[in-house]
Amino acid sequence: MALTREQIASIATLARLDLTADEVPLYQEGLSRILEFVGALERADTADVTPMAHPLPGLTQRLRPDEVTEGDGHERYQQNAPRTAAGLYLVPKVIE
């Protein structure tokens, strides 16, 4: 199936990716090719097959004891942050 320019634009919006005007047709073509390729899955008979989300079936979640093991590391962690002030991460104004 071929994706339209509008579909590419809306996927890019959902994924918060800025695409230039000349990138759009490239992704249009690439994604359409990929979707056509993975469309082969449609032919597989999967009636009554339980989807497999993990490669080790049967394992279940381990539970951690409720203990505080981590202290304050914000000064170190914020060295990687593009913009901070007074311990806060700063972003352009959020309008609610």
Binding site: D66, V68, T69, E70, D72, Y77, Q78, A86, G87, L88
Partner: peptide
């Protein structure tokens, strides 16, 4: 709980930002 749901950070209210 004392610690967070997926990490070992404290959950106490009112600590300085991001500590």
């Amino acid at each position: 709980t004392r610690s967070k749901i997926f990490s070992g950070s404290a959950t106490a209210y009112g600590a300085p930002p991001n500590t």
